[in-house]
Design a protein around this nucleic acid. Structure first.
Length: 438
DNA sequence: TCTGGGGTCCTAGGACCC
DNA sequence: TCTGGGGTCCTAGGACCC
């Protein structure tokens, strides 16, 4: 099994496409008041900036970093190049996200699976990834299971390769923290710590019954085997989507119910558009509400037949909100659809199963979520060509005119409504109907 | 003004059915 | 008066992953 992980992926794509940021701290993530870090470049990590940290804290730790809101079209494009390379290696490729995948080498065209053979192959694969993506580096791990391959890819980051020889798995794992095991996060670690279990070696000394009692059936059983490096999970190249959702955290807590209903309505429209785009429909509509104190509630309802209609999803979402006491303020709202089917109910009786689409209520959209000029976004100027947004505010956008091919361009400022300046969109292949959240 | 967004999987209780 | 067992579906919440 091979696990490939692109190093500091989002930040690396930004440094590739924005030459002036190479060698400098770059932070990609939410840039609003409640944003968090998605990816920090290695230069930013030196200042203690980490994924999932609030952007506020990241700014405090590394004020001179470039804070960018993310360009998913570019990440998706680079990801597809890499996944394409992997699929040429083996038909069994399982992407875990845009920057990670498992590859079953038993189905690759290799003379054998000896350590030397696999090592040479993996090194060659890593250089092919670098060439295909114009410089992105990948860390790769190889082992006898998904678990070992994934652990291995983490051992020599960035730009590293570790091949774990068969038979050496347990001596590798035993000194490690239980948190290397997939599914062991902060809560499980704490539970284990409280009974004196810190390492995989210590976990190994606990009986399966004891683990099940401590952690429940599924994780107890799973941990018992993973602690012994027993992992026969296959690579699953085609996993079906089980839910589609849209959510948003607002810079200031919402208190106006009409506004909340308007936002849910808009989110329902985005969910419906994505369902339709993928030919899906679903029976269960769920709303998610995070209150001012971070308590998170969900309410759901299930239809007798699946829908992909914006009006239906919106109406149900709004009515689910009715139950909830939001008087203290709401920081997050979301809408999701699950119980998916890849077909839509035939209308056997010739009646409209969906009600007439209601006109969407006019809503005041909070300013931050309408920001046209997000930092880092691609723009094109009528005369100066392609560049990217360095910053904006007080009616002015500052643009650096550079691309991967044309570094060291000028920095110029424009009025925010300058007709010569527009967002650059990736060419042709079916642009998103609903805007991608940054 | 600590704490994103898009997901997956698990658990537990209750309704309901045979 | 006491009180089966198994199974499925639904809801709500929580842990976890990238």
């Amino acid at each position: 099994m091979l696990h490939l992980d692109l190093d500091a992926f989002f930040a690396a794509v930004e440094q590739r496409d924005k030459p002036s940021l190479r060698g400098k701290p770059v932070v990609v993530g939410g840039v609003g008041g409640r944003g968090v870090v998605s990816t920090a470049s290695y230069e930013a990590r030196e200042y203690g900036v980490r994924s999932a940290m609030s952007t506020r804290e990241a700014r405090a730790r590394c004020p001179h970093a470039a804070f960018l809101s993310g360009r998913f079209h570019a990440y998706r494009e680079a990801s597809e190049q890499v996944m394409g390379l992997l699929r040429a290696v083996s038909p069994l490729v399982e992407p875990l996200s845009l920057d990670e995948a498992f590859v079953d080498l038993a189905r690759a065209d290799l003379p054998d699976l000896e350590v030397d053979t696999v090592t040479a192959f993996a090194q060659d694969l890593r250089s092919r990834v670098r060439e295909a993506t114009h410089g992105l580096t990948a860390s790769v791990g190889v082992g006898t299971s998904k678990f070992i391959a994934k652990v291995a890819s983490d051992l020599d980051k960035p730009d590293g390769l570790v091949v774990v020889a068969p038979g050496t798995e347990q001596e590798l794992l035993r000194p490690m923290s239980v948190s290397v095991i997939p599914g062991v996060g902060p809560a499980t670690s704490e539970r284990l710590r409280r009974v004196g279990i810190h390492t995989v070696a210590e976990l190994e000394s606990v009986s399966e019954e004891e683990l099940v009692r401590l952690l429940g059936k599924a994780s107890g059983h799973g941990l018992f085997h993973l602690a012994r490096a027993q992992d026969d999970r296959p690579v699953e190249p085609e996993r079906e989507t089980k839910s589609v959702s849209v959510e948003g955290t607002y810079d200031t807590d919402l208190t106006d119910r009409r506004l909340m209903e308007g936002l849910l309505t808009r989110q329902a429209g985005e969910v419906a558009a994505r369902l339709r785009k993928h030919g899906l429909s679903g029976r269960t509509i769920t709303i998610k509400v995070r209150l001012h104190d971070f308590t998170t509630l969900s309410r759901s309802t299930t239809l007798s037949s699946p829908t992909d209609a914006a009006g239906t999803i919106a109406r149900l979402a709004r009515s689910l909100l009715t139950d909830l006491d939001t008087s203290g303020g709401v920081r997050l709202l979301g809408v999701g659809v699950s119980g998916l089917a890849d077909w839509v109910q035939e209308d056997l009786f010739g009646e409209t199963t969906d009600q007439e689409e209601e006109p969407l209520p006019e809503i005041e959209v909070p300013h931050h979520s309408r920001r046209t000029w997000a930092p880092g976004m691609d723009v094109v100027h009528a005369e100066l060509g392609k560049g990217w947004v360095w910053g904006s505010g007080r009616g002015v956008v500052t643009v650096r005119f550079e691309t991967a091919e044309t570094p060291a361009g000028p920095v110029r400022s424009f009025p925010e409504d300058d007709p010569d300046l527009s967002p650059w969109r990736p060419p042709d292949p079916t642009p998103e109907t609903a805007g991608e959240p940054a």
